[in-house]
Design a protein around this nucleic acid. Structure first.
Length: 491
RNA sequence: GGUCGAAUGGCCGAGUGGCUAGGCAAAGCUCUGCAAAAGCUUCUACAGCGGUUCGAAUCCGCUUUCGACCUCCA
């Protein structure tokens, strides 16, 4: 059996995964900045890393999964100048900053619940770790890698890069960053506080317009962009932990700076593996606020957006995401979503079919190779599309058995049930969707109608039987006549 | 402008040198009172031009088109 391998962005190789302290695995994922409702693109990271979380658990690891909530520190403008994003929005909406952060954190959690994402072991907030951030900044200053300037503290990139490789993760050339390459066309405010344009803020002195501010040795202010993740991952996972994940757009400067901060603080690489998922695009372009092409999660689930032909369910979205490899871009389109919707239904219906299958003495089917193919797919850098392809092979097998075209032994059937349900529900984290609500009373009611229709059929009263079928279809119930009897599903 | 990446059948999307996924859509057949569901079958693609090789979607070069990052971003 192949071992679990993941693509490490830092070394740019697919490398075998082995945890620092077997069987424990520490994972840190950069969570959302809670200044707005989540959009479609925000769903990808949680879904991708949920599979990682679930698969590692399935493999027997004890996982501590940390996902932060950024409720301070991200600025509206570049160059470390400008208002805190959250504070700005709070002023606009006339509410407490923390009220706003809570509101959008809840919104984010609603999305996670809908997508059946496992809860994080720890979900730290940046605003709750100001002390840790200040301590870390002080250590970096003491170590000579940061300097104070007018109440703010900046990381000394040129100084750091004399002895360290700033830019390795994101493929930047540090000399060009130091020279300010790419900044020529931009008007950057407050660069005079910095010794070098490549330097980034660890602490910012707050002006009176900043609602969120804290005391520090340097000024009353707020922490910089990147220090929160370094401080919180360090606190909960240690100076070095196993996997750090996030979107590819965080590669630079966020993750690059995290590495620098950790190295400057403790001479340790923060993460042993860096995993980055790609973006969801709309018409080939990244979904982003600035492009005004964002579809909020709520709009997606209700279908209320000009780009949407209809509403799509959370599981359709999850399945859509999992049908592509996490490192490739994934382009949104209605036809692709509708294909995913049908594919997901096929997969989930097969699970129900499977539970009704009867084993046979002369069954010759073996699913050993299919099971192995499932593990191989995930072991090879979490290739969920190949895993799903293998699951569909099982679906065909399940349907063949159910229609009597082939037979399966009791032992093989148990194995098939175990493998299929494990991967569909436990590892991929897909779930039945209670559209109108399957329950005992509906089931009983439906059985009554099915019996009545079958009686009509037996009496060749097709007008009545077709009428029952038609009326049920109009109500969203699909009647399926199989060899083993009649079943129904809710559309 | 710099750095990096992508181009696969009607659509989505795997696949890194020979065995050429999977889903959706389409067509035919089986089953069915008729349907639906399900099964079987068919549709065999790799942007273009060169090169390497016995053999290339896969490696190399060039061209074209597109994208990401370089600024908050999942």
């Amino acid at each position: 059996m192949k071992s679990f391998k993941i693509y490490d962005t830092y070394t740019k190789n697919v490398t075998p995964f082995s945890p620092l302290n077997h069987p424990f695995v520490g994972i840190y994922i950069c969570g959302p900045t809670v200044y707005g409702h989540p959009h479609l693109g925000h769903a990808r990271g949680p879904v991708v890393f949920d599979v990682l979380h679930r698969y590692l658990k399935h493999l027997g690891y004890k996982v501590r999964f940390v996902r932060n909530v950024t409720d301070v520190g991200h600025l509206v403008n570049d160059a470390d100048e400008g208002e805190d994003k959250i504070a700005r929005k709070a002023r606009v909406e006339q509410v407490e900053p923390m009220e706003l952060a809570q509101f959008y954190t809840d919104s984010y959690h609603h999305m996670l619940d809908a997508l059946n994402v496992l809860p994080a072991s720890i979900e730290p907030r940046a605003s709750g770790h100001i002390i840790e951030q200040i301590e870390m900044i002080q250590t970096i200053i003491d170590n000579g890698f940061a300097y104070e300037s007018n109440g703010s503290v900046y990381f000394d990139v040129p100084g750091y890069s004399k002895t360290h490789d700033y830019g390795k993760l994101s493929g930047r050339v540090v000399e060009e960053l130091i020279a300010g390459a790419g900044n020529e066309a931009r008007e950057l405010e407050g660069q005079d506080e910095k010794r070098n344009p490549a330097d980034f803020a660890l602490w910012k002195k707050a002006g009176p317009e900043h609602i969120m501010q804290w005391n520090s040795p340097w000024s009353r202010g707020f922490p910089g962009w990147h220090i929160e993740c370094s401080a919180m991952s360090r606190k909960y996972l240690g100076e070095t932990f196993d996997i750090h994940g996030g979107g590819m757009d965080l590669l630079f400067p966020h993750h690059e700076s995290e590495i620098a901060q950790s190295m400057a603080c403790s001479s340790h690489q923060p993460a042993r593996y860096w995993m980055h998922h790609n973006m969801i695009t709309v018409n080939g372009q990244k979904m982003a606020k600035s492009l005004n092409n964002g579809i909020s999660i709520d709009e997606f689930f209700t279908g209320k957006h000009p780009l949407l032909e209809k509403a799509y369910s959370p599981m359709t979205l999850k399945f859509f995401i999992l049908q592509a490899h996490y490192r490739g871009t994934l382009d949104f389109s209605n036809s692709a979503l509708q294909a995913s919707e049908k594919g997901f239904n096929r997969l989930i219906t097969a699970s129900q079919t499977l539970s009704n299958i009867k084993p046979s003495q002369d069954g010759k089917i073996s699913i050993d190779s299919l099971r192995q193919a499932c593990y191989d797919a995930l072991n090879e850098d979490m290739n969920t599309p190949i895993l799903i392809a293998n699951l569909f092979e099982m679906v065909t097998l399940i349907n063949q058995i159910a229609s009597g075209q082939t037979a399966i032994s009791e032992a093989a059937l148990e194995e098939l049930k175990s493998v299929y349900n494990t991967f569909v529900f436990d590892v991929l984290g897909l779930a039945f969707e209670e559209k109108s609500g399957h329950n005992d009373r509906i089931d009983g009611l439906m059985q009554l109608l099915i019996d009545m229709r079958n009686e009509a059929k037996a009496q060749k009263n097709y007008a009545l039987s077709d009428s029952i079928r038609q009326k049920l279809a109009e109500l969203g119930f699909e009647i399926k006549d199989g060899k083993e009897g009649t079943t129904y599903s809710i559309l």
